[in-house]
Each structure stands twice: as C-alpha cells, then as structure tokens.
Amino acid sequence: WNPDLKDSILFIDGAREMMGIALQTQGHSLNEKDEAIVKEAGKFLKTLMPNAKAIIADEMKTYMIQGEANIAVTFSGEASKMLSENEDLAYVVPSEGTNLWFDNIVIPKTVGNKEGAYAFINFMLRPEIAAKNAQYVGYATPNKDALALLPEEITSDESFYPSEEAMEKMEVYENLGTDLLSLYNDLFLEAKIFRN
C-alpha cells in the first residue's frame, strides 16, 4: 500500500489470493465469513490498485525474470523459477501471513488403469523421487523422508520451508460456499475495474 510503489506491482489474477492479502493485512482470516468484514476488505483492496502495474497469471514469471516490475504476488514454485533465472530477485512470505496449500494426485472414477495410477502415485511418493520433484518444480515437499534428502541450502530457506512460528500465520483455503465465494469474486472484480 506504499504510494511509492505506484504502478510497480504485478498482482496475481485470483480473487482468493488478492482478497486474502487485504484480509490478512487487516488482521483477519483469509477465510473470513463475516460479510461486513469481507466488504470492508474489498474497499481496502481498491486502495491498493494504484500500485498495480498489471493483474496477470502465468506470464508473471517472464516479466519478473526480465525485470519488468519491482514486486510480484506469486506462488513459491513460480518464485523459485524466477530466482533461478534472475539473481537480483528475492522471495519473501508476508509477515501478516499467507495461504498454505497442497498439490494433490487423484485417481478419477473412470480410470482405465487403476493399478498403473496407484503405481505412479507410489513412485512419486518415493523419497528420492519426491526430493527430485521438489528440486525440479521449486515447491516445498511435505514428504519428510524426501526433505531429509534435500540440500540444506534449500531446506534452510524459510521462504520456501517456513518455521513453525511462520506457519502459525498460514491458512488453508476453506470452502466458503457459493454465495460468499461470489462476494469475494465480485469484490475482486470491482477492485480490478477500479484500477482503470
């Protein structure tokens, strides 16, 4: 919200992420269900929009690698890719908190090769494979045996492997229900339009 950052930040095009930033900055949960608080956060988010250089998605990596913006709101794996290609960048987790999420592998009901699907999941969970995957994609691994195989320079970086204290301020997105999710989406859309 610093006015010195006018037209400087690349924001992710996601209602939950951006509304979550507004809510957590004001000391609320990113899963806030009180509509009055959510609406107030929407107003607060509008005051951030003068700092937006753009509201984008996948192209953010390229822009940050090329030094097209000063700051970006992004995911840790995306940041890892950016850092590997531009040594002038740094990745930080906001002290107010952030979302905590997990990739999942699922098997659809219509699977044609159930045995093969389970074999693939078991393969990906093998510690040596999970460690290689974590290094390749740049996202932290929840696999404790894989974690032990990773270099300390990776696991000691608290932006990617946060401390227990930092984790206390991180929240998993909850299902808000259709009506409340629509409100989050509408408020984010209003903030995006307000920017213009």
Rank of each mutant, 00 (worst) to 15 (best):
W1E: 08
N2T: 12
D4K: 15
L5P: 04
L5Q: 03
K6T: 11
D7Y: 06
S8Q: 09
I9Y: 08
L10D: 00
F11N: 08
I12T: 14
D13E: 09
R16Y: 02
R16C: 01
M18Y: 10
I21N: 06
I21Q: 04
I21T: 05
T25H: 07
L30D: 13
E32Q: 14
K33H: 05
D34I: 12
V38T: 07
E40D: 06
E40F: 00
G42F: 08
G42C: 04
F44Y: 00
L45A: 01
K46D: 08
T47W: 04
N51H: 02
N51W: 04
A52C: 12
K53H: 09
K53A: 12
A54F: 08
I55T: 06
D58E: 15
D58Y: 10
D58V: 01
M64C: 09
I65T: 04
G67R: 02
F75W: 10
F75H: 06
S76K: 04
G77F: 15
G77M: 13
K81A: 13
M82P: 10
M82S: 03
E85R: 12
E87S: 15
D88G: 15
L89C: 05
V92R: 12
G97H: 00
G97E: 06
N99V: 07
N99L: 12
N99I: 07
L100R: 10
W101K: 09
N104T: 00
I105A: 05
V106N: 04
I107W: 00
T110W: 15
G112Y: 06
G116M: 04
F120M: 08
I121C: 12
N122W: 04
L125W: 11
R126Y: 11
P127Q: 04
E128V: 05
A130S: 00
A131Q: 09
A131L: 01
A131E: 03
K132T: 15
V137H: 02
Y139I: 02
A140M: 00
A140N: 11
K144R: 09
D145I: 02
A146Q: 04
A146C: 09
L149E: 05
E152P: 04
E152I: 06
I154H: 00
T155C: 03
D157A: 07
E158M: 14
F160C: 05
P162E: 08
S163I: 11
E164R: 10
E164K: 15
E165Q: 09
E165P: 08
E165W: 11
M167E: 04
E168Q: 15
K169L: 00
K169N: 13
E171N: 00
Y173I: 05
E174G: 01
E174N: 10
E174F: 10
L176C: 07
G177Y: 12
D179R: 09
D179V: 02
L180K: 13
L181E: 15
L181A: 13
L183Q: 11
N185V: 15
D186N: 12
A191M: 01
K192H: 02
K192T: 07
N196T: 03
